[in-house]
Write a protein that binds this DNA or RNA. Structure first.
Lengths: 218, 218
DNA sequence: ACTAATTTTTAGATTAGTCTAAAAATTAGT
DNA sequence: ACTAATTTTTAGACTAATCTAAAAATTAGT
């Protein structure tokens, strides 16, 4: 059995090692988890013993495949719960993280797979980060909706979800079309509206518009 | 801050003391939590110190008002999560308890109150047990739907939720009307259908029928 | 390459929750 | 009321996760 603390170490190491691919040093883990280097040394010894990572004294640690799978599964749970909180329970996207930190540790395959289905298999969380599927595979198609886009990033418009005349006319009258370059300036937590820059003009679009506009990462 | 273990002790004491009203002895707590009497003694000392209960050596413990509130809040969370799991995530009513045991410890007022609203303020969980509101008050009106009724109990039919012609004709053709006495024989976890006895006849009704038929406890 | 600064590990202590085994208090039987 | 059985508490020890302080290894500067 894996403990809550072990899961948090593995998750931190995964993020620090850029998806668990790189070696991570003791101080970085300590800082990330707001603990002391000596505590980290103790824990990584235990995690190495349990085969979640490889540990070389004074060198650092790197996740094993087993450890990487644990990390990806926690991330999947975290991000699915974030979608649930925002879409069903009226949380704003900056309120979700803390609660999701707890929900991500609930252990039940049925729970998380039914939640995935209930949410209609979302591919990205409210911050725009990708959600791995039940096999731990991240969707590599880089199509996301504007509401999933990250602040500060620039995208190209590649399509719509809602192709109603009303929506297309709205886009047209605001000079948004296929190929339009859009930079995300701000996401308003209160109503999930999004402030964007297009061409040289700035504008705010509603959550409804943002959800129906598909973008590609540039 | 209250720990997960402390919460579980308080919950057990609440149930054993019939809603926290009666004194509970050490061995009963130990048996209920599958631990040893010596561990219980240690823990109740700590809980008494924190004012969740009153402890008299060799006598037993009784919850304080503060302790009772903690217990009721955990029960509220447990039962709301059970409703969510059954109604939204296709759990059967005998699968929910274990997962709800974990979910009940997530601490977020916003989470639980939004969940309550999302579920449309249910008054009973899938086992027929009442759900206290956000102030810790149990609904004392004994109207429940057939799907919330307990196996083995007998009820009187007092109304319907769905008053469509189709539904009323269905009830009529099966000799179910206002005042009809109904005993719950079996609840089928697979599809949430309910086997009932009425007059002297037995029949099975679907989940849909069960949710729309209101009963009063006899 | 040798000292200085940094990073990491070790050693020993602490806290929460648990356990076993023995002692103390209570309850029950005659 | 006195012994026997039961229940409860105490005492001491264990594990997981943490900490501080000191020691050891690595890295950097000249």
């Amino acid at each position: 059995m894996i403990t809550l603390t072990e899961e948090n170490y593995i998750k931190a190491i995964y993020h620090l090692g850029k998806h668990g691919k790189n070696m991570v040093n003791t101080n970085a883990i300590a800082e990330s988890l707001e603990t002391k280097a000596s505590s980290v040394t103790d824990m990584v010894k235990k995690l190495a013993e349990k085969d979640y990572l490889n540990y070389k004294k004074y060198q650092g640690v790197i996740l094993t495949e087993k450890g990487r799978q644990v990390a990806v599964n926690i991330i999947r749970k975290h991000r699915l719960w974030e979608v649930f909180l925002v879409e069903k329970l009226n949380f704003t996207w900056d309120e979700v993280h803390e609660v999701a930190e707890h929900l991500e540790h609930i252990k039940s395959d049925k729970l998380i797979n039914e939640l995935d289905s209930f949410l209609e298999f979302p591919t990205h969380d409210p911050h725009g980060d990708p959600i791995p599927d039940k096999n731990g595979i991240f969707n590599t198609i880089d199509k996301i909706s504007l509401s999933q886009a990250n602040i500060g990033n620039t995208y190209k418009c590649i399509g719509v979800e809602d192709s109603s005349t009303n929506f297309l006319q709205y886009l047209d009258s605001n000079n948004i079309g296929l190929g339009t370059t859009i930079t995300v300036l701000h996401k308003e937590p209160f109503d999930n509206s999004v402030k964007i820059k297009l061409h040289t003009k700035e504008m705010v679009v509603s959550q409804n518009v943002a959800k129906n506009l598909y973008l590609k990462v540039l």
